[in-house]
Design a protein around this nucleic acid. Structure first.
Lengths: 335, 335
DNA sequence: TTGTAAGCGTTATCAA
DNA sequence: TTGATAACGCTTACAA
């Protein structure tokens, strides 16, 4: 295999010391114009690129960010990653991607790997199905060693940076839009219970019923899974009830698309016969027919803030550790 | 910031030399059981993790793979990445993700970054809209420095590893399935012309017409863009023709989903009124209603081979540089 | 079985 | 304006 040039090779050929070559590479110090030119010519001639590994070792800084998420094929996660990565690139950082598939063992393995590789920070989007005590301990041990930023996720008893969408506000806006239009038969496909984002929304939904915004029908609140299939089956059931709902809310877009499919199966028109609203604004909402009304995360600012907290070392010293971004109602065709 | 322990710290506390500590870490040499235990205890006590950067520098090997693709939010790419990453993790490799957005300047920037960071290999899925001479030159310069594996992509005049789906065979199977069922009015939404995968399929389609499998109607072959929107608009036009096609082929799933949407808009039932077939088997095909019949890449083997070519150093010496994987017809509801 | 010391390719300090 | 050299944290000959 090809032997790469080093600063020594360049220095030798230019008849200078490695220190001078380093100065030219980094523009760090005064160098006589003639020597600079000589060295630069050699750099160009050999297409010399300094070895970033060696530099990282010396500087104790890798300009690497670890990005841990459950599943990159889920557009919610990939959108955040894409925005984060674009922004990181501008600042000379590169992303290492870590799919856990929701398996805590993969999480542990990746956490270890990232620490060994001395990444400058970790962005963590969660998704582990079991939140063991162990997980909190693990993170607590490392959170002062390097910045860990949770995006729309949190682990109890840790003091990590947190960058969140205001899902409470987002879901309230959605409920208000429904109320504004006067619909009273409103169902919620709630997905998997017991996780925080679900509970927040279910609570707001129940509150709306108590306020008299919607009729109370207990069969309109249905649990399930965060999949298209699950959304479809639940909606299929709802839509064949004697009094079917006027509006179906999917607690996320995936579920809402399932509900949309159920409408197609039953030959119901959306939004004429049934209205559907999702949540998250993943790209899938623009791929279906009719396009899906939803509530959007501020993907760009979420991602940028997460990266900033890692890139900008001074943020470690600041006391502000929690950041909240408002969500936005996106009106499309399905509602 | 927290100062990490090094082999020196461990060695000092154990009263041995760093070499011995290294031996324990790597199981590389005989070490007396008593000293091994003493050192291992210290490692556990401090949760000591060897600095992978230093190790990489010495070994001239980073166990890093650069993965260059146009856009991670596109499920075709993210599926390959996920499979590659799962497999790489098993072998101790980590993926650095590089979204080019089809912009050749991003590609160049990332290529440089990856080389500086001394990744052990690059997986490249292409997608750049302009194929300049410059691009070939660039890649040619580096292809003997480290393994570059193109997945379903190629750049003329280079000698990189190539791992490909047999799209020709895949598309032929698709055409045969249509012929087998006796449909003669078959339209092809061809997407953007001028790129290789498109031209291959268009050619096979035209060949099928010449063989008398399908009727020749020149309005049935339509150009466009690789988007849902484009697919929808083209299908909308086709479906309102005096003699609308019995079958619409989307040259990829995205376009086919657009065609499906057009059917919904026009209240046409799929597959009763119109049949639709896509290509690629992205996860979107299972999210729509009806689920989409398509032709699938062998995502797993494609991804594994790409990783193997990088991980297994001996492959660099072998002369076999091109690998072709058969595609599979996936029959679902839309056809 | 263990230790010494060189080397990986940079950067930065200090001296010249 | 430049150069010599130590340091970053690890692995591995080679020696003991």
């Amino acid at each position: 295999m090809y032997k790469n040039k080093t600063v020594y090779d360049i220095a030798a050929e230019a008849g200078v010391s490695v220190a001078t070559v380093s100065r030219v590479i980094n523009n760090s110090d005064k160098v006589a114009e003639s020597t600079r030119a000589k060295i630069q010519d050699l750099i160009d001639k050999y297409d010399f690129k300094p070895n970033e590994v060696a530099r990282s070792l010396y500087k104790n800084e890798t300009k690497l960010i670890g990005f841990i998420l459950p599943d990159i094929t889920n557009p919610y996660y990939s959108t955040v990653l894409l925005e984060a990565e674009k922004y990181a690139l501008e600042q000379g950082y590169t992303m290492m991607i870590c799919n856990t598939l929701g398996d805590i063992n993969n999480f542990k393995l990746y956490l270890r790997t990232l620490l060994e590789r001395k990444v400058d920070g970790i962005i963590y989007m969660g998704g582990e199905r079991v939140q063991t005590q162990q997980l909190s301990q693990l993170i607590k041990r490392y959170e002062e060693e390097l910045p860990i930023v949770m995006v729309n996720w949190s682990i109890p008893q840790t003091n990590c940076f947190t960058v969140k969408s205001d899902e409470e506000q987002g879901f309230e806006v959605l409920l208000e839009e429904i109320k504004k239009k006067g619909y009273k038969d409103v169902a919620l496909l709630a997905g998997r219970r017991g996780v925080m984002p679900t509970e927040i929304k279910v609570h707001l939904y129940e509150e709306a019923i108590q306020k008299g915004w919607f009729h109370h029908r207990k069969e309109y609140l249905v649990d399930g899974d965060f999949t298209v299939e699950s959304g479809k089956n639940e909606a299929l059931h709802l839509l064949q009830l004697p009094n079917r709902p006027q509006v179906i809310i999917g607690i996320n877009d995936i579920i809402a698309v399932g509900a949309l499919n159920a409408c197609h199966m039953l030959r119901l028109s959306v939004p004429e016969d049934v209205k559907i609203i999702g949540f998250d604004n993943i790209n899938l909402t623009r791929a279906v027919y009719p396009t899906m009304t939803t509530v959007s995360h501020d993907y760009v600012n979420l991602a940028h803030k997460a990266v900033d907290l890692i890139v900008d070392k001074s943020s470690l010293l600041k006391k502000e550790r929690r950041f909240l971004y408002p969500m936005e109602y996106i009106c499309r065709e399905s509602f």
